[in-house]
Simulated assay, not measured.
Amino acid sequence: MSKRPYHHVPIIESQEALIEIPLEKFAVETPHPYEKLGAPYGKHSPYFLREGVVNRLITAQDYLQQKYADWYIQIFDAYRPVEVQQFMVDYSFQQALAARGLMESELSEIQSKYIWEEVYKIWAAPSLNIATPPPHSTGAAIDVTLVDSNNQIVDMGSPIDEMSDRSMPNYYINNSHPQASVYHRNRKLLADVMEKAGFHRNPREWWHFSFGDQMWAWQHNQLNPDNLMTARYGRLY
């Protein structure tokens, strides 16, 4: 995999603690979707983040409830060791093969390259290089959606982790789907409360937000070229 633009941002590790998310303040995907598949999390559950990121997530939840008192941010995934990143990349490749009715042993080089490119549109490479950590392996990134007052997941027009253009945050902004405006409004609400708390959204994924990692710093620097930031969170463990 080639480097992504944000990988050029230096990391000056803050040594901030990885702490447990206070799940009572949020809605939670149960059982955890990747643990259910057998992902090897080890000593930390997926529901951990850096302390400063947890505090901002609580702030985002407060912003949401100022608008909709009985709505919650639902946590899908947070901290992800590199081993889990590798597991999910491999799993997603196999899912992509199955969806196309293909066998890995029968793939041409061109077919294999195309499918891996599709996988890496959604998944960061499971890099062990300390200069290019997967965002979730820093404890700075989180995948979230919303739950309404009826405890129903708010429809965003596509599921988390879908490998298609529907994952793009603004996919529905000028779309002919009859529910397009609803889906876009829901995505915008999620982005608004998260961004107000200091997060930036992944340009390719409506559900992925981060604070303090390389992607966040790179996005900050794109918006503020006169006030450049380094990343404060690198790979953990």
Score class of each variant (00 low, 15 high):
Pro133Val: 04
Ser149Lys: 10
Met156His: 03
Gly139Leu: 07
Val147Asn: 07
Val154Ser: 12
Asn129His: 07
Leu146Ser: 10
Lys121Ala: 07
Gly101Ile: 04
Val147Met: 15
Glu106Pro: 02
Ser112Gln: 09
Leu107Ile: 14
Pro133Gly: 03
Thr138Ile: 00
Leu128Asp: 03
Ile142Lys: 01
Ser137His: 06
Thr138Ala: 00
Ala124Val: 05
Thr138Leu: 01
Tyr120Asp: 00
Ser149Trp: 06
Gln152Ile: 14
Val119Arg: 00
Ser108Arg: 12
Glu104Tyr: 10
Ala125Asp: 12
Thr132Ala: 03
Ile122Val: 13
Ala125Cys: 14
Gln152Ser: 12
Thr145Ser: 10
Glu118Thr: 15
Pro126Cys: 05
Gln111Met: 12
Val154Tyr: 08
Ile122His: 03
Trp123Leu: 09
Ile110Asn: 11
Pro126His: 02
Gln152Pro: 08
Leu102Val: 06
Ser137Gly: 09
Ser127Arg: 00
Tyr120Arg: 01
Met103Val: 09
Ser137Arg: 03
Ala125Thr: 13
His136Lys: 11
Lys121Trp: 01
Thr145Ala: 13
Ala125Gln: 04
Trp116Gly: 06
Ser127Tyr: 01
Asp155Trp: 11
Ala140Tyr: 03
Ala125Leu: 08
Gly157Arg: 06
Glu118Phe: 08
Pro126Leu: 06
Lys113Glu: 11
Ile130Ala: 10
Ser158Lys: 02
Asp155Ser: 14
Leu107Gln: 08
Gly157Leu: 10
Val154Gly: 11
Val144Ile: 15
Thr138Phe: 01
Ile153Asp: 02
Ala131Thr: 09
Glu118Met: 12
Leu107His: 08
Gly139Thr: 09
Glu106Val: 06
Val119Gly: 00
Met103Glu: 11
Tyr120His: 05
Ile130Phe: 09
Ile122Trp: 03
Asp143Gly: 02
Gly157His: 07
Met156Tyr: 01
Ser158Asn: 12
Ser137Asn: 12
Trp116Cys: 04
Tyr114Asn: 08
Leu146Met: 12
Ala125Pro: 06
Asp143Gln: 01
Glu117Arg: 11
Ala131Leu: 08
Glu109Thr: 13
Ile153Asn: 05
